[in-house]
Write a protein that binds this DNA or RNA. Structure first.
Length: 613
RNA sequence: GCGCCCGUAGUUCAAUCGGAUAGAGCAACGGCCUUCUAAGCCGUAGGUUACAGGUUCGAAUCCUGUCGGGCGCGCCA
């Protein structure tokens, strides 16, 4: 799938190489100590903000100054003297406290056009990851309801990170962890069952409706699940009908059922959470084996719906990992045993504990309760033990901000297993505060009050929604105004970028129609705007690398806006098709390169690059 | 109370593991369609980077404290 990495044009890399040789030279002559060079390892070559500082600047001399106990400007002068000759460098000067500024020959920038042309879709890709295997786990919402807009940010972010890691040479996979083992899922099954009873024969509707718990799942989708259950399983989930579903539809059964429903709601605890737990217990005993089938019906249906919603959103997971599979497969026992073997497990007050505090967590955490049941954390430990055991070099967990308390304990367990800390990375995605105009939108899955991801896609479109989500740094709080997103969808920055792509495609369509065949070379480019574009184009591989290294897709989004801005300005200032013969071809080559890079960049964000708008 | 994340222009957000004069979109104001898509371009205006100290050649970025916002602190999931 991923094209082989090709050696790519990188002016920055060239400058870095020159400096490296200069340092080696000075070190060889004894003018720099090894210790000083090591201490200055953090020095970097970076693009300048101000053209007067040249095209690239290095703070190497500043970083070396202290460990080498020398004046930074003197050091800079020595480094400059030791620089090997390069046909790309116009001149080098020393500025300010000791920056080394590189001015690139204009002609050298022209090379980027050929580099993009020959690399095509793989321009921007690198082998930085060297084929290392990465697993990105994201979304992982409980299948207790459809995905809502709060999940969208994690979905857009995680998917973009996976795409960017792939581009950076990692073998990246996407995984969704299905939390299908907990109490929330029992509440869902109960909710579906009650709606099922409510919709059945026997006059149960009013009774059930009156007793439907406020803290059960209220959403309309629960009724849909109940209706589907009835369609697929008939009366199988009626109390008393579970064991002899075949002939349960007798008139006599109505009274049986009615009585059961009365007792179902009789003498319940006052506390709402205790009440719902009691109802779950009654549901289980009423259905017997049927409970498992009802549970599976609800869970499978919702997971399927989530999968469809995500596919529509452009996110395809490689694996769907079920918590129940962990439970059934004995993974929890194995994981706890592994920790125990390393001496990190102890018993206290009848419960079993993991010594998380020994690995930087705030306190020790229970993995097994006094009653013998395992905690939620235990399955999480087992899950990460399993993931690490599958041979991934990098595990990236994308958590919602409300799970941040988790990162510490999961990392503690990971380390306790003997895995290197760095293999497990966690990135938090902050909540998006939803607004409709100036009114805050409250969201609750149990209460059924939420805007679904699907509805968002239909309202503002997948491209606009995805771009918006990844246009903010993941740990930054963000406001999402639904009214604005809808009203201003045409002003969304994503269209600005897509429009640049469409405009270029349009130019080439016109060119095809004209049938003109002329020659030309990039050397005919002389306008300042053309060199700005060339420099921006040459930045793309650096942006992708930086985005991959820090898991920051927003860097790509901002880069694309820069590139589109440079292009639109150029478009308005210069003709392409009606330019003089040699220049004409060169300009078309330039904008062809722009089109390629926009398409490559948008693909990293999972956003389409339309040929027409 | 303790812990984590955050605080940048009217507003929504950037700022290359500490770099030189903190930048964009939207909103506001003034211009540009007889030429390749005006979903565009050009220009103007907008800042004590919450506040106070500290570290150094250099701080929005690192440290300490204060204020403000979000989230989390169970043998719940």
């Amino acid at each position: 799938m991923s094209p082989p990495p090709s050696p790519q044009f990188s002016m920055k890399q060239e400058i870095e190489n020159l400096l490296e040789q200069a340092v080696a030279d000075l070190r060889g002559r004894g003018e720099l100590s090894d210790a000083a060079v090591d201490a200055a390892a953090g020095a970097r070559v970076q693009r300048t903000r101000d053209a007067r500082h040249g095209d690239f600047a290095s703070n190497l001399a500043l970083a070396l100054a202290k460990p080498a106990a020398a004046n930074p400007r003197d050091l800079a002068a020595k480094l400059v003297d030791a620089l090997p000759a390069s046909d790309a460098v116009e001149k080098v000067d020393i500025a300010g406290p000791g920056f080394i500024n590189f001015h690139i020959k204009r002609d050298a920038w022209l090379r980027v056009i050929d580099a993009i042309d020959s690399a095509g879709e793989s321009y921007g890709r690198s082998d930085r990851g060297a084929g290392r295997r990465a697993l990105v786990e994201f979304v992982s919402a409980n299948p207790t309801g459809p995905l809502h807009v709060g999940h969208g940010r994690g979905a857009a972010y995680g998917d973009a990170v996976a795409r960017i890691l792939s581009a950076a040479g990692f073998d990246a996979r996407r995984e969704y962890y299905i939390n299908d083992g907990g109490r929330q899922m029992d509440i869902l099954a109960l909710s579906v069952w009650l709606r099922y009873l409510q919709g059945g024969d026997g006059g149960l509707g009013k009774t059930v409706a009156r007793h439907f718990p406020v803290n059960a799942y209220q959403g309309g989708y629960v009724r849909d699940l109940a209706a589907a259950a009835r369609e697929q399983h008939g009366d199988a989930f009626m109390p008393g009908g579970a064991n002899d579903a075949g002939d349960a539809a007798d008139a006599a059964d109505a009274t049986t059922v009615d009585t059961t429903v009365d007792t179902l709601f009789a003498a319940l605890p006052d506390d709402s959470e205790a009440r719902i737990d009691a109802l779950i217990a009654r549901c289980k005993s009423a259905l017997g084996d049927g409970y498992r089938r009802l549970f599976a019906h609800a869970c499978d249906a919702l997971v399927g719906q989530i999968r469809d919603d995500l596919l529509q959103f452009g996110v395809a997971f490689d694996t769907w990992f079920s918590e129940r599979a962990l439970l059934d497969g004995g993974d929890i026992e194995r994981a706890v045993a592994a920790l125990d073997a390393r001496g990190h497990i102890y018993e206290q007050d009848g419960a079993t504990w993991f010594r998380a505090s020994a690995f930087g967590d705030e306190k020790d955490r229970a993995v097994r309760r006094a009653d013998g049941s395992h905690t939620y954390f235990a399955s999480d430990i087992a899950y990460h033990f399993n993931k690490a055991g599958r041979g991934f070099d990098l595990l990236l967990n994308v958590f919602g901000a409300d799970h941040h308390g988790y990162a510490g304990r999961v990392l503690a367990a990971f380390e306790a297993f003997g895995f290197e800390r760095e293999r497990l990375q966690t990135r938090l995605v902050q909540f998006a505060t939803l607004w409709r105009g100036n009114k805050k939108v409250q969201m609750s899955t149990r209460g059924g009050q939420f805007v679904t991801l699907r509805a968002l896609c239909e309202e503002v479109g997948v491209d606009a929604a995805r771009f918006f989500y990844v246009s903010r740094k993941n740990d930054q709080h963000m406001d999402f105004d639904l009214a604005l997103a809808r009203a201003q969808s045409a002003d969304n920055p994503v269209y600005y970028i897509q429009y640049a792509h469409a405009r270029i495609c349009s130019v080439f369509r016109r060119e095809m129609e004209s049938g003109a065949a002329d020659a030309g070379a990039p050397a005919a480019l002389t306008e300042p705007g053309e060199f700005e574009l060339l420099q921006t184009l040459s930045r793309f591989p650096e942006v992708v690398e930086a985005a991959a290294a820090a898991f920051e897709p927003h860097l790509v989004a901002y880069y694309l806006r820069d590139l589109a801005r440079d292009f639109h300005a150029y478009y308005n200032a210069h003709p392409f098709l009606s330019a003089p013969p040699g220049v004409r071809r060169a300009r078309l080559q330039l904008i062809g390169a722009v089109r390629q890079v926009i398409a490559n960049g948008l693909a990293l964000l999972g956003v389409s690059a339309p040929k027409k708008m």
